[in-house]
């Protein structure tokens, strides 16, 4: 249950940080903004580490055993942000959220089955229901958007 709340809460934080990022990008530029984010993030993770140093059982030897691909998460994150900066302005935030989710869900199901959580009926049906709900809500958003512009045009 704790993890469910964690994941939900990080969705909340994603939106807040998106808003902050867009404001920061307006002031200093998109990539400069991301640079600040990662630098602040690094500092903050060091602070977190220092507070928890007693609980850490780490030896440099481990670094030799890690497969290279496991270290690439940070790089993939930067690539995602860069593509997003091009794509989202072109197709709109509502539509891109939907499309991104389709990618996430299908790849997520594939990876889950690879790491030993077989694709269950419930996961597929659940995913489709989520998608259905999102499509419905984005349809309402879009309709309002059109209503707004039509009304403004009439005035």
């Amino acid at each position: 249950m704790l993890y469910i709340i964690f994941a939900f809460f990080s969705g909340f934080m994603t939106i807040v940080s998106m808003i902050i990022n867009s404001k920061l990008a307006m002031r200093i530029g998109i990539f400069q903004g991301i640079l600040i984010n990662y630098a602040v993030g690094l500092l903050f993770s060091i602070v977190v580490l220092l507070f928890n140093y007693k609980s850490i059982d780490f030896s440099v030897d481990i670094l030799y055993y890690i497969p290279l691909w496991a270290c690439l998460g940070g790089a993939i994150g930067v690539i995602c942000i860069s593509i997003n900066n091009i794509v989202i302005p072109k197709i709109g935030a509502i539509y891109s959220t939907l499309l991104i989710f389709i990618g996430q869900l299908s790849m997520g199901l594939a990876i889950d089955s690879m790491v030993g959580n077989p694709i269950s009926k419930g996961k597929v049906i659940g995913g489709l229901l989520i998608l259905g709900g999102m499509v419905y809500n984005s349809y309402i958003d879009k309709r309002d958007l059109i209503d707004c512009t039509v009304n403004h045009g009439a005035n």
Binding site: I91, I100, I102, G103, Q104, S106
Partner: peptide, 9 residues
């Protein structure tokens, strides 16, 4: 956009 979703996963 779909590709970004795949990358995120």
């Amino acid at each position: 956009a779909v590709f970004v979703g795949i990358l995120i996963a």
